[in-house]
């Protein structure tokens, strides 16, 4: 599904190398988790994959189902099936959530050469998906993420994921700012989307999210590289002992 080879990235504005050769392969239908201390490059990886400005790829490659995603515009990556759930979803005053969701869905359908969805069909679809995430009509009516609580914003991210049905979902610290109940709700939403054809890359600081969204593979990232990969037990090890041992081992 997603294949990253020796990916090297620096900040465009300054001469600072963030990713120093990341190798990662996510097979279809699997959930991979990336853990690591602050500043290790986890969020940069998610931004570079989704096409945010401000980063320069200095080496390596990243492909989605064989297609070089680094060559594509952010909207083309989305249409190709890549989805980033933001750590801090953006508030957009003046743009209604429903308008936003429908524009996004229809833009992707159009880009893939599919028919646009009618207003009625869309309304039906949104209501159905929103219900299971406990997103009420009011949240759909309000401007995108404006006045949403932290939990509501993350649920809105999962709603977008459910509507857009991407193949490759990257969750950037989706657990940050969530209380236990909200985390459960968001995780259930994500788990409901798990399927054979869909993969997840879950970026997190804490093991607790992985109690809800069970990963197949756990990677530890440090200083712009993946220094260790293993099964779910690796996350537990981090939880119990911190990163120090792993870092020492790697050096």
């Amino acid at each position: 599904m997603l294949e990253i080879k020796n990916l090297q990235v620096k900040l465009e504005e300054e001469d600072k190398q963030i990713l120093k050769g990341v190798d990662l392969t996510v097979e279809p239908g699997t959930v991979h988790a990336i853990m690591g201390p602050n500043g290790s490059g986890k969020s940069t990886l998610s931004y570079v994959l989704s096409g945010r400005d401000g980063y320069e790829v200095t080496g390596g490659s990243a492909s989605l189902e064989g297609e070089d995603v680094l060559e594509l515009e952010p909207e083309e990556r989305a249409a190709a099936g890549l989805f980033l759930a933001f750590q801090y979803p953006v508030e957009i005053p003046g743009v209604g959530n429903m308008t936003f969701l429908r524009t996004a869905l229809n833009s992707q359908r159009k880009a893939r050469g599919e028919d646009e969805m009618s207003a009625t069909d869309f309304l039906k679809l949104v209501r159905e998906k929103a219900k299971s995430l406990k997103i009420d009509a009011d949240m759909l009516k309000r401007p995108v993420n404006v006045g949403f609580s932290g939990g509501e914003k993350k649920r809105n991210e999962v709603l977008q994921m459910a509507l857009l049905e991407p193949k490759m979902c990257i969750l950037d610290e989706t657990d940050s700012g969530l209380d236990v109940d909200a985390m459960k709700l968001v995780s259930e939403g994500v788990n409901a989307l798990r399927s054979e054809g869909r993969s997840f890359l879950v970026i997190t600081h804490y093991q607790r999210l992985l109690d809800h969204i069970k990963p197949d593979v756990v990677h530890i990232m440090y200083d712009g590289r993946i220094i260790k990969s293993g099964g779910p037990e690796l996350a537990l090890e981090v939880e119990n002992n911190g990163y120090a041992d792993l870092l020492e081992e790697a050096v």
Binding site: G51, D53, E73, A78, A104
Partner: peptide
């Protein structure tokens, strides 16, 4: 707002359309 623009594009909304949405949002008040 570049953040808003990227957010819209990351959901598949083409650049021009994303710009128009943000311009309309600006004029909405």
């Amino acid at each position: 707002d570049e953040e808003s623009l990227f957010y819209l594009k990351s959901r598949g909304v083409p650049h021009a359309q994303a710009m128009n949405l943000l311009v309309l949002a600006f004029l909405a008040e």
